[in-house]
């Protein structure tokens, strides 16, 4: 009725996925900063020991990031950042992911990051917009706005409808 193309369940593109990842990084960094400051205040006050050292802090942030991503993916099928942007991680056939998929997704994520982010390039060029960690975990990321249909903007929908390419991002 709104004249907008519906893209619910379609493969999500690079811009949405990058935004979701950025939001997740922001949430993890904020949570870690507040948490570390709180823990440091307690340990300094009670035992005179500061926990603000590079190695323990790095280990802590990696553990937090792992728990954050694995926990949310295994339980809800999406991280909070993906939830805000309206994305969901599914199995490559479209079914809901299992804990095993979520674990492989999280463990394989660094493989996409480490080689200068080359693992993310397939999101742009792959036919199903799957990153390296998606291919390893057997997952895909799709648009899912919950109860509401995922849509493209009206003018763009009209443009894509005129050029008849199905509106798939």
């Amino acid at each position: 009725m709104s004249g907008r193309l519906t893209v619910t369940g379609h493969y999500a593109g690079a811009v949405s996925r990058a935004t979701a990842t950025a939001l997740d990084l922001l949430l993890i960094a904020t949570t870690f900063t507040i948490g570390l400051a709180g823990v440091n205040l307690l340990t300094t006050s009670f035992w005179g020991v500061s926990v603000r050292r590079a190695l323990p802090a790095t280990i802590a942030v990696v553990v937090l990031a792992f728990c954050y991503v694995f926990g949310f993916l295994a339980i809800a099928g999406r991280t909070p950042g993906q939830g805000i942007v309206g994305l969901r991680v599914v199995r490559s056939d479209g079914g809901p992911i299992r804990a095993g998929n979520a674990l492989r997704w999280v463990v394989a994520f660094p493989f996409s990051v480490v080689p200068a982010g080359l693992g993310f390039v397939p999101i742009v060029f792959h036919r199903e917009h799957r990153a390296l960690h998606d291919l390893i975990a057997g997952t895909a990321v799709v648009y899912d706005w919950g109860e509401r249909p995922a849509e493209l903007p009206g003018p763009l929908s009209a443009f894509l409808a005129r050029h008849d390419d199905g509106g798939s991002p």
Partner: peptide, 15 residues
């Protein structure tokens, strides 16, 4: 939803 639509639109343009 307004923000999501713009992001999905950018995805569509890029694709």
């Amino acid at each position: 939803d307004l923000v999501r639509r713009q992001l999905a639109g950018l995805d569509a343009v890029l694709n």
